[in-house]
């Protein structure tokens, strides 16, 4: 604020005051539900996950192999032209340990989160996923990892058909 102005508008409220209804509040809980078509590229991607494979798309213009797949290359802005299976191994590009759940509640055992660059895809092409079977203090950038799949009968065509990624033994 400018030094020429001395008073600022605004009346602070504590969370307690808001919840105890010392101020008049109105509450509403949305009940909307959504169903998304996965689309052409992600549809095939999810089908392949269900079969225990990871698939990407190749752009013949820039020669990138991209995962997750898309039917167009956002760099070249042309249609991608080929389905390419990539491996279910990769390298940790970056990782974090989450002590917050999806609603920002505190949790005791951290969720192990990583971007994993996928073997067989172009360099630096990764996916967001989880790590497991590893002590948090043993995880590092550059570590080789391998997908741990759900048993085939439990897979449903989702990124969670891979349970997590674990360190790859040499």
């Amino acid at each position: 604020m400018s030094k020429n102005m001395k008073e600022l508008p605004g009346t602070p409220l504590s969370g307690k005051e808001l919840k105890s209804e010392k101020v008049i509040t109105f509450k509403w809980r949305p009940n909307a539900k959504y169903a998304w078509s996965a689309g052409i590229a992600y549809g095939r991607f999810l089908d392949e996950l269900k079969a225990g494979r990871i698939i990407g798309r190749r752009c013949s213009r820039c020669e990138r192999i991209i995962v997750p797949p898309r039917m167009f290359c956002e760099h070249c802005f042309v249609a991608t032209d080929e389905w390419v299976y990539v491996k279910d191994t990769g390298t940790i590009n970056t990782f974090s340990l989450s002590y917050l759940d999806a609603d920002a509640n505190r949790i005791k055992d951290p969720i192990l989160v990583a971007v994993i660059d996928i073997d067989g895809a172009s360099p630096g092409v990764g996916i967001l996923h989880l790590l497991g079977n590893v002590a948090p203090d043993k995880i590092d950038v550059g570590m080789k990892v391998k997908a741990v799949w759900k048993p085939p009968e439990e897979r449903e065509g989702s990124v969670t058909d891979i349970l997590f990624w674990e360190p790859l033994e040499d």
């Binding site: 689309g39 999806a102 996916i127 967001l128």
Partner: peptide
């Protein structure tokens, strides 16, 4: 919704 949300991200 397809590639990330099933992982319950924050």
């Amino acid at each position: 919704p397809i590639t990330s949300r099933p992982l319950n991200p924050n």
